[in-house]
Design a protein around this nucleic acid. Structure first.
Lengths: 347, 347
DNA sequence: TCTGAATGTGAGACCGTTCCCACATTCCAA
DNA sequence: TTGGAATGTGGGAACGGTCTCACATTCAGA
């Protein structure tokens, strides 16, 4: 019972070193190194002998030692700042992380994922001390954190962040275009009385989405009235629900036939309230969101939305970061991804 | 335009070494090391002088070099095997990852997160070569992968995996108890005609949940009829929907008043179908799921469920792994977490 | 037969830390 | 006064690889 705790040590344990391999194969460690790296001349027989020992001892090169001399860890870090949700399970950012994970693995990078609610410099410090080859910063980090990382002189890419930092690669969604697409679609269906729930305007995405939407309405001569606009304090389900609840009297009185929310969570929250009021969606009110998170597709009714290409976001960020790490020139600093209208049951 | 790609190199760059600090402070590197580690005697004035240089140069100790000599990387790896979803955005496993991330950060570990769909040995190899201090294996990994890791002699903890591996720490949910809780609750509401959608019985969780449920019904003299049971091929929303659709005629004919699914996704899928058939939930049919994923709480109607304590899972796994790494004895090999009944609109 | 290139191998410095050991100085109690 | 502990500092050997250089051997062409 007591000893059980030690059982894990029973494994063959002890990872071998290149020196041991050399000794057993009767060659120098330089030769073993050559066999492993595949560069330099080496006699086929010697290679086989070495390979055999490696196989027998299940030798795994020590990436730490390797990093020490090569000054490359082949590790990258992902830093996310989120208050509402922890990172991984975040319906939107989680997707980006997944894409990064998949792409990084293909490029032989390991990925440190870091979550930081206080957004102290601590998590950045962590990554920096670990000497990651590069960093992917997701969402809107505080300026001092960005400066801190920038000063350290490590390559980094920003995903879905605000663009007020210069000379840095940004991967973003064409949010303004997305807003216009939503407006074009709704008006195309004949809707003119549209209510809008716009998330925090300090967030680049929400700001641009609203403006794209508004600009389009304006351009077709049917401008958005300020009274048709409400601002949830946070881009959450609860806030969407709450805002819809608060504006319900005006909503009914206003004769609105459609609702646009600057993200899916808000849209879903609002939709839940509408359903509870026995509003028939989309017959009485059509609803469209933005983001294209998984939940939107399984909700009842499933939510029409402007889907952001999170897979491309993660993948692109990775690819570019790899280039930066390799000191290759990147010809574009602002990568803008094109969103897609996904029509579902709610419209 | 062209040079912009090089701008990132403009940072102060160049991380300094302990030797540089020593030189500038006019002391030996041993002394600097002492200042940083805080052990050994050191004159206050010397300390201040060194600290000043460190501050000025923004020196950050190189964790790679440190790991090299201390044989401890202070990195841990998280390995997940999932076919259906990528890991991070997985509604259930993502939560566990989040808890691990938070706990690990508190314990000064950095976390490598790895996703592997083919579940080759490759991702395990990756972690092993990086010399992580320990590994957390989530979900049911293939035996050869576990053996591989076990043989390497590195500490590891299994979360939500099958228990057929001996002498290894397992963190699991009391799934059987959860199944009983669901049955007790539904029957307590007066339901007797209950339909069950049980996910793949090769999965420990789904198997145990079904058995707990069935056992309870049996114990109160109202055993589950085999015709009241359907097995979705996968524990997904789509499969839940599809299975419900297929069994709809029987369902109507059987006079069922309640539905139990062995996870939330299946329950939600089934619920969507029911709603589309204008079935009133919970009036005509009560629905209960299992897992306690976020979506369940925001769905309309929100889903009653047996919530697994994913936070505790991740936290416990981390805490125990830390002990194993530290060679501390752990007195329990099987950590079983108690699930909780969350009552919502669907029942 | 000679010569220079091609092939094959090993010695040893180095990457940036930690830590043990040696040594110097101060201090206090006998 | 003196010796041993306490305090303070530096030298240098690891850690496990990579990579440059030197050197040995083989081989082909003149």
């Amino acid at each position: 019972m007591w000893e059980r705790s030690h059982i894990q040590k029973a494994g063959l344990d002890m990872s071998h070193t290149i020196r041991e391999i050399a000794q057993l194969a009767g060659v120098s460690k330089s030769t073993v190194s050559r066999v492993i790296s595949g560069k330099g001349y080496i006699h086929p027989e010697t290679r086989d002998a070495v390979l055999k020992v490696i196989e027998e001892l299940q030798y795994k090169p020590n990436a730490v030692a390797r990093a020490m001399v090569s000054q490359r860890t082949h590790n990258i870090g992902v830093l996310i700042y989120r208050k509402e949700y922890p990172i991984a399970s975040h319906p939107f950012y989680g997707k980006i992380v997944d894409a990064i994970l998949a792409t990084a693995a293909r490029m032989n990078y390991s990925v440190f994922v870091t979550t930081d609610h206080e957004m102290s410099l601590r998590s950045a410090d962590f990554m920096l001390e670990k000497r990651v080859d590069g960093l992917i910063l997701i969402s809107r980090l505080q300026q001092n954190v960005i400066d801190y990382i920038h000063n350290f002189g490590i390559p980094y890419v920003m995903v879905n962040g605000s663009t007020d930092v210069d000379n840095v690669v940004h991967v973003v969604n064409r949010d303004q275009d997305g807003g216009m697409m939503a407006a074009e679609y709704l008006t195309g269906l004949g809707h003119r009385q549209i209510f809008v729930l716009a998330g925090p305007q300090t967030h680049r995405s929400h700001y641009l989405r609203l403006h794209g939407f508004r600009d389009y309405l304006h351009s077709i001569g049917s401008p958005l009235d300020p009274s048709s606009l409400a601002y949830p304090q946070a881009s959450t389900f609860d806030q969407g629900y709450e805002m819809m609840r608060q504006h319900w009297p005006d909503f009914k009185a206003g004769g609105y036939t459609a609702l646009f929310a600057t993200n899916d969570m808000i849209a879903l929250g609002a939709m839940k309230f509408l359903i509870e009021q026995s509003v028939r969606i989309p017959d009485q009110v059509a609803v469209i969101g933005f983001d294209g998170i998984d939940v939107a597709s399984i909700y009842t009714p499933s939510l029409t939305t402007i889907r952001v290409d999170t897979e491309a976001m993660g993948r692109t960020a990775c690819t570019i970061l790899d280039k930066l790490i390799d000191q290759q020139p990147v010809n574009e600093l602002d990568i803008e991804l094109v969103p897609e209208l996904i029509i579902r049951q709610s419209t």
